[in-house]
């Protein structure tokens, strides 16, 4: 159950479908760098419901075949240059969705159901171009009532960073319930945590309410500041200076490759 971050990266095979959360939910940049170090290939990323620097760097490093999400944004450090370059030179396939559809696809997988119907979306060009979605008639309505059917999304693995795990492999995610959805929808979850406690999280009802049980967890690595240079909802703020540096460096592939040399291949930069 307990590994180093590079061992966790070994557990994610080439070609895996990998669910990653949005920046506000806790990004495991430590495991992202380990994936780049192990030269992962042909990953299918699912940004839940959007992604940022994590996907940008995996794409820039050539680890990604498909990017499925509702957006890729670096926030105030936009544009995401490696993503844009890969898209424009057709190095990656992009499956563009809308946020609630990503959540709905995962919820269908959580229930072991084939699809989830969703309101809205009809008339959006997103629907025209999406390879999987279908418009169906609401079977319970006598009137014409189209709804969009979103097929289940079952990632091979969900990866994220959380504050706390216990020795039994339970992980505390607080009110970031999308991390629970992601993990339950996926075949397994590989998680980096700020710390590991000797106290069982399920024995305390207050903590248990926000705990992902070890049933869904495939591996944990203790990794302080695992979201760096991104912020973390549990306190740590983003490293703006580093992100500005990244933004400059990533203008060209050469600059990006140098960035990887400096901050990824030479080990953790903290």
């Amino acid at each position: 159950m307990f590994h180093t971050v590079d061992e966790l990266a070994q557990k994610i095979p080439d070609g895996a479908k990998v669910a990653v959360p949005a920046d506000y939910a806790g990004i495991t940049m430590a495991l992202t760098r380990a994936l780049i170090r192990r030269h992962a290939k042909n990953l299918h990323l699912v940004g839940v419901p959007v992604s940022g620097l994590q996907s940008e760097q995996l794409i820039g490093a050539g680890c990604v075949a498909t990017y499925e999400s509702s957006a890729l944004t670096l926030g105030e450090f936009n544009p995401a240059r490696r993503f844009t370059e890969a898209l424009q030179n057709r190095k990656i396939k992009v499956v563009d969705a809308t946020c609630p559809a990503i959540h709905a696809g995962l919820q269908a997988s959580q229930k072991g159901a084939p699809f989830m119907p969703l309101r809205g979306i009809i008339g959006s060009d997103i629907l025209e171009h999406h390879p999987d979605w279908k418009v169906i008639q609401n079977p319970f309505s006598e009137d014409e009532d189209p709804v969009v059917a979103i097929p289940a999304i079952q990632p091979d693995v969900a990866i994220f960073h959380a504050p706390l795990a216990d020795r039994d492999g339970n992980v505390w995610v607080g009110r970031r319930r999308e991390l629970v959805n992601m993990s339950q929808a996926s075949k397994t979850a590989l998680i980096t945590v700020e710390e590991i406690t000797d106290k069982n999280l399920l024995e305390d009802e207050t903590m248990a309410a926000g705990t992902l049980p070890s049933l869904y967890v495939g591996g944990i690595a203790e990794c302080k500041n695992g979201t760096w240079p991104l912020g973390f909802w549990q306190g740590q703020s983003e490293d703006g200076e580093h992100l500005s540096h990244y933004s400059e460096a990533s203008r060209t592939q050469e600059g990006f490759d140098q960035y990887l040399q400096d901050f990824v291949f030479k080990g953790e930069a903290l």
Binding site: P49, V50, S69, S70, A71, L72, T73, N78, P79, A80, T84, L87, Q88, R90, V94, D96, A97, T98, C99, P100, A101, L118, R119, G120, I121, S124, D125, I126, L127, H129
Partner: peptide, 21 residues
Amino acid sequence: EYPVQSPRWPGTFGSAYLYFL
């Protein structure tokens, strides 16, 4: 022309849903 746009912006986010609801 989608999908190879220039510029490409971040993406549609939740707009295709919230605008209806």
